[in-house]
Simulated assay, not measured.
Amino acid sequence: MSARLPTHLAVGALVRRVNDAGGFAVVRARGEAQTGAILLLIDEGRVVRGLERFRDLDDRESLVPAGPVDADGVAMDDYWRKRRASDPDLWVVELMIAQAERFAAETILVC
């Protein structure tokens, strides 16, 4: 049995933590509440990079790069919209805060 939080709870906790810390987090698209995949859009000013929650064969979770490398906002927007068209269960969350990857790892990954 997995100790993984339902996706809607993990996303809600991440958005709340980032906003409480003075950053900006918003859900761009809602997916399946229990088991939907999570794509994070990390806005670093001129570059937006993607990270996705990934579960390996040993049932360990990590954040892996997703989408175009060194993408501007338009390229990443096109990427996630195409992904969402093929996977309507996908959650898309945009984060604007220093150390966004740390916030995400501490909140949505199961140890």
Rank of each mutant, 00 (worst) to 15 (best):
L51R: 09
D70R: 12
A37T: 13
E32T: 02
D59E: 11
V26F: 06
L41A: 13
G67Y: 01
I42C: 07
G23A: 11
V64G: 05
E44V: 02
E61N: 02
R28G: 01
L39F: 02
R30D: 07
G22F: 02
P65V: 09
A75F: 00
R49Q: 10
R55W: 11
E52V: 15
R84V: 02
V69E: 14
E52A: 11
D43P: 04
R46F: 10
V74A: 15
R53E: 07
L51S: 08
V26I: 14
L63W: 02
D78G: 10
E32G: 08
L41R: 13
E52R: 15
G23F: 10
L40V: 04
L41Q: 14
L40T: 02
V48A: 08
P68I: 05
R30K: 14
G36N: 08
R30I: 02
I38S: 04
A25K: 06
A29Y: 00
F54S: 12
D58Y: 12
P65K: 12
D56F: 01
D43L: 04
Y79P: 00
Y79N: 06
R55V: 15
R46W: 02
L51E: 12
I38K: 01
W80L: 06
A33K: 15
L41C: 09
T35H: 13
E52N: 03
W80G: 07
S62N: 11
A75Q: 12
E61Q: 15
R55G: 09
W80P: 01
R83G: 05
R28S: 01
T35N: 14
F24Y: 11
D70C: 00
G73S: 03
R84F: 00
P65F: 14
D77F: 03
K82H: 13
L57R: 15
I42N: 05
I42P: 04
L41N: 06
A75E: 04
D72W: 02
G50I: 08
R60A: 15
D59W: 07
D70G: 13
L57C: 07
V69I: 13
L57K: 13
D58F: 12
M76A: 00
I42L: 14
D56L: 04
A37E: 15
L51M: 05
I42F: 07
R28D: 06
P65G: 12
G50R: 03
D72H: 04
A66F: 06
A33D: 11
D77P: 02
K82F: 10
I38H: 07
R49T: 12
K82G: 11
R83E: 11
R49W: 08
D70L: 14
Q34S: 14
R84I: 01
L57G: 15
V47M: 06
L40Y: 03
R81P: 01
V64R: 15
D77L: 10
P65T: 12
D78M: 08
